[in-house]
Structure formats: C-alpha cells, structure tokens
C-alpha cells in the first residue's frame, strides 16, 4: 500500500511536468493546427541554457527564467520564419509533420554537436525532503508542482478573462471568422507561440531538475508522453491537456511500481493508442477531425 501511495507521489511530479509541457504543446496546436514534433527538442535547448546559467553560478530562478525566454524565442522564431512560410507555401498536414520532424532532427543533433554526446546535470543546491501522507518530495519537486499549479492558473485566467485569451480561442475555433471580426490573427498566433514557447522552456528546465542527468535526447524522448497527454485531452484543448497529463503521469508511475519500470512508457503509449482508436477527438470533443493547418 505504501508503495502505491509513494508511486502516486512520483506520478504527481511527472504529471506536473507533463502538464506544463502538454498545455504549451496543445496551445500551439490549437491556434495553428501544427503538430510541432520539434517541441521536445526546444525543451532540451532550454534545459541546456538553464544548465549553462546554473554552471555560471546563477540561481535556480535565473535558470528557469533563462529557460522560459529561450523556449519562447525559439518557438516564436520557428513558427514565424519556418512553419508559417511553409504553410503559406502550400505544405499540408502531413508535409508539416515531416517539416517539424526535420527541425527536430536538426535541433537535437545540432545540440549534440555543440554540447557533445555526454550527460549533464543542473548545478542545484541540495534541499531537504518532506514527507506528506506517505509520499516523499524534495524541495525541488515541491517547487515543480508549485510552478505547474501557477502556470495552469495563469493559462486559465489568461484564456478565460482577458481579451487576448478570447482572441486566442476565437482564432483556434475559426481563424477566418476571427479575422473577419477584426482579430489580428497574425499577432495572436505570434503571442500564442511566445507563450507556449515559454511553457515549453519551463517544462524543459523542470524536466531536467527532476532527473539526475540529461542529454541531447532527453526532451525528444519526453515528447511522446507530452503528445499522449495532449491528445488524450483532445488536442488544442488546454484543460483537456491538464487532465491528460494527470492521467498519463499517474498511470505511468503507478504502473512502474507494479510491473517492470521499463514498461512504464509502454503503459502511457498504450493509453494514447487506445484513446485515439476509441475516441479520436480526445476526452473533450471540440476540434473537428478534418481541420487543416492555418498560417
């Protein structure tokens, strides 16, 4: 039983990181309908910048900020100067997948070429452990969960209570109509990528905060659970992504406690495949199944 409770604790941490990442991923997809498979590698890039900051003596907060800025700018540049031109050039759904995979290859191997094929870890102060109802967390893990909660609250209030959030939802639902109603969709898309990029960067830093070491492939291999969480909740739907993250995070960590931990990702992926086959639109049905990419 205690093993079960303990694994729920691990699951909550994984779910927190997943939630930050998959909400960012799903925002990009919701607004532009581009399945950005280079997302994981942007996460890795942010993690490397955070690593450089901590090695230079910067605090964890400085590292998080640097990671968020890196992710934000990198995502904006990718969309503005690569994805959007390709879509305007006439590249469709499948073509965009190939484009984003190519970008992923370039980023991942570019990072490997720069930093080398070895393992790195953030230089972090040691913190005490806290026990809570049979679960054990380090100070940093509590911080990760705190960041996730704050990030979710910010995303929620932005989407629900601001003009920008309304414009974003309008653009996601029907870009033509939104443009017709006077929404500057170009700017909205730009802001959406800046924002989701910041989430991507923060997710990258929190991901490597929680592991002992990372390499140029860390973000890329974390991408599939991220996509799984986003798709589970219905791609383009931020609240769905939060719930999806919780399900995938808990399912993978709790199953790791009872079956061979090597298979924990198989469990997460299995959930994704089953959901896609049974309910392709995700838990929250909102996105039409025939939507095309928009620029």
């Amino acid at each position: 039983m205690s093993l079960f409770v303990l694994s729920i604790g691990f699951g909550l941490i994984t779910a927190s990181i997943l939630a930050i990442a998959s909400v960012g991923f799903t925002l990009q997809f919701g607004v532009t309908n581009i399945l950005n498979l280079a997302y994981g590698d942007v996460m890795t890039g942010a993690a490397f910048i955070a690593y450089l900051v901590t090695r230079a003596g910067g605090s964890l907060w400085a590292a998080l900020l640097a990671g968020a800025i890196t992710g934000s700018l990198a995502s904006y540049v990718l969309n503005r100067f690569l994805y959007t031109p390709f879509v305007r050039h006439g590249t469709r759904l499948f073509g965009m997948i190939i484009v984003t995979i190519s970008v992923s290859l370039v980023l991942q191997n570019g990072l490997q070429a720069i930093f080398g094929a070895s393992f790195f870890s953030l230089v972090l102060p040691r913190t005490a452990s806290y026990g809570f109802a049979g679960m054990i967390f380090t100070g940093q893990q509590l911080l990760i969960m705190g960041i996730a909660v704050v990030a979710m609250a910010v995303v929620h209030s932005l989407l629900s209570y601001t003009r920008l959030g309304r414009a974003m939802r309008a653009t996601a639902a029907d870009p033509e109509l939104a443009r017709g109603c006077g929404v500057a969709t170009d700017r909205v898309v730009g802001v959406a990528w800046l924002m989701s990029g910041a989430l991507c960067g923060i997710a990258g830093v929190t991901l490597v905060m929680n592991v002992t070491s990372f390499s140029s492939t860390t973000g890329g291999s974390f991408l599939i659970p991220v996509v799984a969480a986003a798709v589970l909740g219905g791609v383009g739907h931020p609240y769905g992504a939060m719930i999806g993250a919780l399900v995938i995070g808990l399912a993978s960590e709790v199953s790791a406690a009872f079956v061979n931990p090597a298979y924990k990702e198989v469990v997460a992926f299995g959930v994704l495949v089953v959901v896609l086959l049974v309910r392709p639109q995700g838990i929250f049905a909102e996105i039409a199944t025939q939507k095309e990419v928009v620029a």
Partner: peptide, 24 residues
C-alpha cells in the same frame, strides 16, 4: 488496429507510438 478513419497526423502518431512500444 491502426488503419481506422483517423486524421493523417493522428495516424502518424499512432504508428510512431507503435514503433516506440515495439522497441521498448
């Protein structure tokens, strides 16, 4: 299992995931 009526990109994801599961 996988050749259902799915959007191209979702189908690609299912295939990608099948590949990763098989490797694991």
């Amino acid at each position: 299992v996988a050749l259902r009526k799915l959007r191209t990109d979702y189908q690609a994801m299912v295939m990608l995931v099948i590949s990763l599961i098989a490797t694991t």
